[in-house]
Nucleic acid binder design. Structure first.
Length: 338
DNA sequence: CGAATCCA
DNA sequence: TGGATTCGG
């Protein structure tokens, strides 16, 4: 899930139109998980085909990527590889939360509380290897490149940006910046206003851009010091110091300059400090230069329509968006322009 | 979630 | 017509 850095790192809103022509490295699990959690029916069940196989992730992937491809954005998906042994604690916690949510979902359904049921159902979301494999098959059929990282996908995306083969990383997690990605896009969706499942409430979710340079300027900390601050707060690889969040973490690093100094002052010890630092500053990655191709209509139709019962008309409309030229730059044409 | 549809 | 609601699989 990553680190809570939203309060101390500046974000600037970006328009989709400003991203035309850019190559974006998307955190694949992050994206599929969001679809799996959010594309659900009122009782909380995900979309499924006639055989009961979940299709929310495929629906989300096709319609999100086609809508953004129509705006001229190009995507490369990055999937996590083998998690580091130190991530076990986080993964175990995640699994336990899902088991608990499963029971609460069933209880809410039995009590007839559909709103609560949906919320709990979302928390049970689990991406299976089959779902990931089918999403990758869809990407192949769409002509979109993807790569599996040796370990953390966010580090792979950062390395690809450094190599100049993509222009930005797309993820909800701030960790991407700690892995050294110069530029991170969050909330990259099509529509702005989003209704909360509860009741009469909406939230604005607009795409925003964060940069490592912006984080460094705002905090007056180096990249290495930002990593030290995160280690004090707790990361996916270490539990952190109880009571240290973004505010105190920033203050400590500003005043003392390093995790060692901060730990000494707090009377705490982190045995594997250097190993933790290296996980962010020198994470393994592979060389990968993405290339983009045309969608193979037959393959997409076979996968989505024949195998999973998607509407041929809806899939056809989505496919056209990959080949249609993007609208011209600048403000949208209105009737007044004619 | 995005697309399609509904309706003041 | 566009904001709210429902559908999709």
């Amino acid at each position: 899930m990553g680190i809570k850095l939203g309060s101390i790192i500046p974000a600037r809103p970006v328009e989709i139109a400003q991203l035309r022509g850019q190559r974006l490295a998307v955190d694949g699990y992050n994206l599929l998980y969001q679809f799996l959690a959010s594309i659900r029916q009122r009782d909380g069940m995900p979309l499924a085909d006639a055989h009961g196989h979940t299709t929310s992730h495929l629906s989300g992937l096709l319609f999100r990527l086609s809508a953004l491809a129509a705006e001229g954005l190009r995507f490369c998906l990055i999937f996590d590889g083998k998690p580091h042994a130190l991530k076990k604690r986080v993964l175990d916690e995640r699994r336990d939360r899902k088991i608990k949510a499963q029971a609460e979902w069933e209880a809410a359904l039995a009590a007839g509380d559909l709103v609560k049921a949906r919320t709990k159902a979302q928390q049970t979301s689990r991406l299976t290897p089959e779902m990931v494999a089918e999403a990758q098959e869809l990407l192949d059929a769409l002509g979109l490149p993807w790569v599996t990282a040796p370990s953390e996908g966010e580090a792979q995306a950062a390395a690809m940006m450094a190599a100049g083969v993509v222009d930005a990383a797309v993820s909800q997690d701030f960790d991407t910046l700690l892995f050294g990605a110069p530029r991170l896009l969050r909330n990259l969706t099509v529509s702005g206003r989003r209704k909360l499942p509860g009741r009469q409430a909406w939230v604005e979710v607009n795409p925003e851009e964060l940069t490592l340079a912006g984080a460094i300027e705002a905090t007056q900390l180096s990249h290495e010091q930002l990593v030290d601050m995160a280690i004090l707060m707790g990361t996916d690889f270490n539990p952190g110091i109880h009571g240290i969040g973004p505010k105190k973490g920033l203050k400590l690093l500003r005043e003392l300059g390093s995790a060692e100094a901060a730990l000494a002052k707090l009377g705490h010890k982190v045995d594997n400090l250097d190993e933790l630092r290296q996980l962010f500053l020198n994470h393994p990655s592979v060389e990968f230069a993405p290339t983009w191709g045309e969608p193979r209509r037959g393959r997409v139709m076979e996968l989505l329509c024949e195998r999973h019962g998607f509407s041929r008309a809806r899939v056809g409309t989505a496919l056209e968006k990959f080949t249609q030229p993007p609208p011209p730059m600048g403000q949208q044409a209105t009737l007044g322009d004619f």
